[in-house]
Design a protein around this nucleic acid. Sequence first.
DNA 1: ACCCGGTACTCTGCAATGCGAGGTAGAGAC
DNA 2: GTCTCTACCTCGCATTGCAGAGTACCGGGT
Lengths: 110, 110
Amino acid sequence: MGPWETQLRKGLVELAVLATMVDGEAYGYGIVERLRGLEGLEFTESTVYPVLARLARDGFLTIRAERSPSGPMRRYYRLTPAGERRLREMSDGWRAVSASLATLLEGARG
Amino acid sequence: MGPWETQLRKGLVELAVLATMVDGEAYGYGIVERLRGLEGLEFTESTVYPVLARLARDGFLTIRAERSPSGPMRRYYRLTPAGERRLREMSDGWRAVSASLATLLEGARG
DNA sequence: ACCCGGTACTCTGCAATGCGAGGTAGAGAC
DNA sequence: GTCTCTACCTCGCATTGCAGAGTACCGGGT
């Protein structure tokens, strides 16, 4: 895929990853698969795992390990209160940018 | 501003800059001022000028110099056919990602 | 003549991060 | 044993936004 799409994704992984956890736990491999079904959000494991590690390190996620029925141990991540706040902030920021860009593109009668 | 917003902007400058030229010419300084009025798109000159140079180098823009009534010469940029195509592609890509993210956030009942 | 604020463009260097490539390992099928 | 799928981790590179600093043109005030 083109390099511009790579750049577009920067900063979006974090938001996308956090969003996968709003209604409960999620684990790395599962998140990757879930996002693979969404156009423009097809991240690889090399992208998602470091993000999860960083978010956990910064106190936005807690970790719980559990046996998988079909492979190695899974590491389930869950939002902390700080994580939920973070998600809201990013979500709001995203919507703002989204609106600005829409204005710009729409003013172009696109 | 936070580093995450910086990352979010990656790849967006190009789209935003191209979008300022749909209905005619635009010059660097003016683009910066125009975007300054849009939340989340407040780019600095250090960001915009290199983007313009890159887009021109890659054949998406043509350049025309003209005297300014209030300062040094302005360099006006205009979309080439390739530039217009590029803008459409990026615009479509953006809308796709935007929709995917909306699905994700909305499914979260956020 | 001098300085200052606004306009307009350029360059260097740093920081952040997506991701390809490669590695480890458990579980079930054959 | 080997293969495939699941599941996680790490190194290193390439890209790019942006602060900071610099250059230069212009008009107005003094």
